[in-house]
Design a protein around this nucleic acid. Structure first.
Lengths: 219, 219
DNA sequence: TAGATTGTTAATCGATTAACAATC
DNA sequence: TAGATTGTTAATCGATTAACAATC
């Protein structure tokens, strides 16, 4: 049986795209070797953390000089699988779905959104950011044709579970879930949850600490 | 000096909204006492983790019965500050900004989006999901009037830093950053970064493990 | 009552940070 | 060369999980 696995080094993996961004910028301005210290300064992190994180990609740096920027970019991209193209569909072509279809950053990193799906007749047949929108009823058929690896789920939450089931039935095994619904999926399907509420919770607690700090200064 | 602080219990705080969602649903169907075990089952977590997390809100449960649902909801809401209204503005009324303005989940949790800002003349003066869109040049003025606590930043990344500076100058101290830009802000301003790339990185690594597992089964 | 569930205390696990020799 | 930076090994820190007495 394929057991649901935890991803090791999750915190490091989540930081890699930030590094990639900084290193690409560095390279595009003609930079040659980039040090962990420089990356750390740019992102308000500790140099040792950057070095440890980069090590998981297999890159070897040069003492005193840093890491060869070009190779480092390739190493991160390869580690993340961003050096090859991944076809994806967007299920739910509302505002959020539309935003994601137009997100250039994804395309730069191998995520190729090839189709959108919606139930709204005024959207079906149109193109959003160049992506053709299909009737959600034709999901099975079109997935069979174009064989995408990823489904990005951006429907309103009441439709999340049922849409998810259509996606699973169509044969897609990776779902990026932007709804606030905990999806029930078979073991062989993996779900990455993108939970805006959790970010809002963090923001809220930060705000309370901010208020507390101001109080303690004033009094 | 107000030093930039780390939030303790961040992982627990991030899970609280999920619990809240489950408990509200439970209560709305007439549920009385809800056990940590039930919540854990619903979210594929360990009961002990749920109990530990709930404990930080100060809730006291009853052995054998669980937690009083109504009180538990109030405790979580209060811990997060979601029991009082927080005025927010959205800077950048593109697709993502529009999606957030229409996100009912936020309104249910005290986040009151009272104005949007954009530089596009066709948007200025209109309403998106009921929210009035203003010229970004009038940010200062309107913030002075309505005194929002939070700015949600959804401009294209080339404008992120400059928009951020306008926000800071206007006096707002909490920024929810949906751009992929690392913002440079004074010490007394806190930024919550919502980084879609990090989610995509996790998804990508999950997909690789999926592929590896299938391989090992086939061979 | 019996047994499920709580809260507490301790053990484990993994991530971050520190220390430092190696080196370009 | 001198010194900044690497990679490795160890120490610390915090989060998760386990064990279990208390109890409704």
């Amino acid at each position: 049986m394929v057991t649901k696995q935890k991803i090791s080094f999750a915190p490091s993996i989540r930081r890699l795209p930030q590094y990639l961004h900084v290193i690409r910028q560095f390279e595009s301005t003609g930079g040659d070797y980039i040090s962990g210290t420089l990356i750390a300064n740019e992102l308000n992190l500790e140099p040792i953390q950057v070095r440890k994180d980069l090590a998981i990609t297999g890159i070897i740096g040069k003492p005193k000089r840093g890491y060869p920027a070009g190779e480092l970019i390739k190493a991160i991209e390869h580690y993340l699988g961003w050096d090859i193209s991944h076809k994806a569909i967007v299920v739910g072509a509302g505002n959020l779905g539309s935003a994601l279809m137009g997100y250039q950053e994804f395309r730069n990193n191998g995520l190729d959104i090839v189709a959108g799906f919606d139930s709204d007749p005024t959207k079906i047949g149109s193109r959003i950011h160049g992506v053709q929108i299909h009737n959600i009823d034709s999901l099975d058929e079109i997935v069979a044709q174009i064989k995408p690896e990823i489904a990005i789920l951006t429907v309103p939450s009441p439709f999340a579970q049922s849409s998810c089931e259509s996606i699973v039935k169509s044969g897609i095994k990776s779902i990026w879930n932007f709804t606030n619904t905990k999806l029930k999926v078979p073991d062989y399907v993996s779900v990455q949850r993108e939970d805006l509420s959790s970010g809002y919770a963090m923001l809220s607690v930060m705000m309370q600490q901010l208020a507390k700090n101001l109080d303690s200064i004033e009094n």
